[in-house]
Simulated scan of single mutants.
Amino acid sequence: MHNDDRTLENWREQKKNKTKAAIQREALQLFREQGYSATTAEQIAEAAEVSRATFFRYFPTKADIVLYDVFASKTLARFLAMPAEMKPLRALQHALLKALDETSVEEREQERQREALLRTEPELRKQMPDLFARRLPLVAEALAERLGRPHDDLEALVLAGAVVGIAMALWTVVEQDLSEGFIERHVALLNKALVLLAAVIDRDG
């Protein structure tokens, strides 16, 4: 892919993510005011000032709004932008911290609310295993790109499996406290887990 093509693709992806984040922001506000179940797609589209068709192009279902992880998307973008000489797990640690630093107080509160919905709404909670499964190839592709390997590289896939497995374990077992400061604590736990994973790889490698 030529640089101009990649730049255009990145611009389109950034524009898409910006629109999705705006829709999610308005949706979370409505969920907070009138509840998840009582809020309709039409109300969200109106609040976000987008057409019904645009809304469903970005989010096929109402559940997809909450499942959309702005912070994870931001982290992945920062990860790909880290210096090429940095080891993958170290680069991911730096990307997490950079994404956190770029997340406003308002955005952190939105993330906390989103997490609360994922844990308390049965419709959403039952979709979490599938969500983690969908993240796996995205993480594997990003790792392969940093390693200069094909997108189906086995080493990148195995490492991605370990990273996504850590995220799933923390979500289901460790991180249950959704009080103020949730995202900071969660990033700290993720970073600690990545340090442990890197130590195991270095020891056994």
Score class of each variant (00 low, 15 high):
130 D>V: 00
120 T>C: 09
114 R>L: 08
86 M>P: 00
117 L>N: 02
90 R>P: 01
114 R>C: 08
142 A>H: 05
147 L>D: 04
114 R>W: 06
127 Q>F: 02
136 L>P: 02
91 A>W: 01
148 G>A: 13
82 M>F: 00
145 E>T: 13
148 G>N: 11
82 M>Q: 15
134 R>P: 00
86 M>C: 03
115 E>A: 12
139 V>N: 03
116 A>F: 04
121 E>P: 00
82 M>R: 10
104 S>I: 12
96 L>Y: 14
127 Q>D: 00
109 E>K: 13
132 F>S: 01
107 E>F: 08
88 P>E: 08
108 R>Q: 15
110 Q>R: 13
102 E>W: 11
148 G>H: 12
106 E>R: 13
120 T>V: 08
97 L>H: 11
83 P>T: 07
136 L>T: 04
120 T>R: 14
150 P>M: 05
92 L>H: 05
104 S>E: 06
127 Q>G: 01
91 A>M: 03
132 F>H: 03
118 L>N: 07
92 L>W: 08
112 R>D: 04
102 E>G: 08
103 T>D: 11
127 Q>T: 05
129 P>E: 09
130 D>I: 00
106 E>L: 11
86 M>Y: 02
116 A>M: 12
87 K>C: 01
103 T>C: 14
141 E>A: 15
114 R>V: 03
102 E>Q: 15
98 K>I: 01
88 P>F: 03
86 M>A: 08
118 L>K: 13
122 P>G: 10
147 L>C: 07
83 P>I: 08
139 V>P: 03
105 V>T: 14
121 E>C: 06
123 E>M: 13
147 L>A: 14
148 G>E: 12
146 R>P: 00
81 A>R: 10
85 E>V: 06
112 R>T: 07
82 M>A: 13
109 E>L: 13
82 M>V: 02
144 A>P: 06
84 A>M: 05
114 R>Y: 04
98 K>S: 06
131 L>E: 12
139 V>A: 08
128 M>P: 01
135 R>N: 07
80 L>Y: 00
145 E>Q: 14
116 A>H: 10
138 L>P: 01
133 A>I: 05
118 L>Q: 11
112 R>I: 02
133 A>W: 10
121 E>M: 07
102 E>I: 08
136 L>M: 06
95 A>R: 11
149 R>T: 09
138 L>G: 09
142 A>W: 07
140 A>I: 02
100 L>P: 11
148 G>P: 06
98 K>T: 07
122 P>F: 08
108 R>C: 12
145 E>A: 15
132 F>Y: 15
88 P>D: 04
128 M>F: 05
91 A>L: 04
91 A>Y: 01
120 T>I: 06
110 Q>T: 00
111 E>Q: 14
126 K>L: 10
131 L>V: 11
144 A>Y: 02
144 A>W: 01
96 L>N: 12
103 T>A: 12
82 M>D: 00
123 E>L: 15
126 K>D: 06
123 E>R: 15
106 E>Y: 09
113 Q>I: 14
95 A>W: 05
122 P>S: 09
126 K>A: 11
96 L>E: 05
81 A>M: 04
95 A>H: 10
119 R>L: 02
102 E>K: 14
124 L>N: 05
105 V>M: 11
141 E>K: 15
81 A>N: 01
142 A>L: 08
119 R>V: 02
103 T>M: 14
134 R>Q: 12
137 P>M: 01
143 L>C: 12
109 E>R: 13
141 E>F: 03
142 A>G: 07
124 L>Q: 05
110 Q>N: 13
106 E>M: 06
